[in-house]
């Protein structure tokens, strides 16, 4: 997720800014590792149904790739909309 969502550090003393910024870095690393894990979980669950062999067949591989790409595009779009809402830039229906 985008760093800017986690808050505005401008009106903090320099030393606290550093500490806050390092805290955000830590959260982002943890979050991206978790995202990786849950993306694998989701695409595996949706795309791999049979266990007659121990390697992915072509169809499963394609499915996994599309699943991951689609999720990343989705996640980016959600991020944009979410940022707009956070800034109160809501438009009528």
């Amino acid at each position: 997720m985008d760093k800017s969502m986690l808050g505005d550090l401008d009106n903090l003393p320099e030393e606290d800014k550093l500490r806050m910024s390092s805290m955000i870095d830590q959260l982002q690393i943890r979050d991206s590792l978790r995202m990786y894990n849950s993306l694998v979980e989701r695409c595996f669950n949706d795309c791999v149904e049979t266990f007659r062999r121990k390697t992915l067949d072509k169809q499963e591989e394609t499915c996994v790739k599309r699943c991951a790409e689609k999720f990343l595009k989705h996640s980016m779009r959600v991020g944009l909309r979410f940022a707009e809402l956070n800034q109160g830039a809501s438009t009528p229906d």
Binding site: M1, M5, L6, G7, M23, I24, L27, D31, R34, M35, S38, D46, C47, C63, K65, R66, C67, E69, K70, F71, K73, H74, S75, V78, G79, F82
Partner: peptide
């Protein structure tokens, strides 16, 4: 901040489940 990250992740997953067909016929 943890709360915001969790909110964003739950929202992302909920909307993926509600909006995206999970046959993945294309990647767009």
């Amino acid at each position: 901040m943890e709360y915001r990250v969790e909110l964003f992740n739950k929202l992302t997953n909920a909307c993926f489940n509600k909006c995206i067909e999970n046959r993945y016929k294309e990647s767009e």
